[in-house]
Amino acid sequence: MVILSVMILNKAGGLIYQRDFHEGLHKLSSNDFLVLAGTFHGVHAITSRISPVHGSGGLEVLESENFRMQCFQTLTGTKFLIFAEPHQPNIDVICRRVYELYADYVMKNPFYQIEMPIRCEAFDRHLMAYLKPKQ
């Protein structure tokens, strides 16, 4: 299972978590990541409107030669973006597991303010252990 990176966006489209899980990735500045997140949030909203099928959700999968990005949107508007290698199977399982870790170690943390950047050590630890077990 090779996951390249994970991004989490809050309801308003602001970036609250970004982490790389693979070496050799092109490093962007933190400002660039924020811009990227905002852009994606907008694109997601637009795609949900222009879709010819009535009542569909927004952009879910973006696939290219080098990577595959999957977006999982929760009922509360939080978006989980998983960047993985192009032929990685079972990304939904991974998405769900990351959501579960989020619900546990971020939402049950009394020191976490909702919609703010995630600074939870336990979340980082468990995510690392799940996505990079040989670390």
Binding site: D104, F111, R119, C120, E121
Partner: peptide, 9 residues
């Protein structure tokens, strides 16, 4: 189990 104390405290 689910608590991560921020570095300031």
């Amino acid at each position: 189990t689910y608590i991560s104390v921020p570095k300031e405290i």
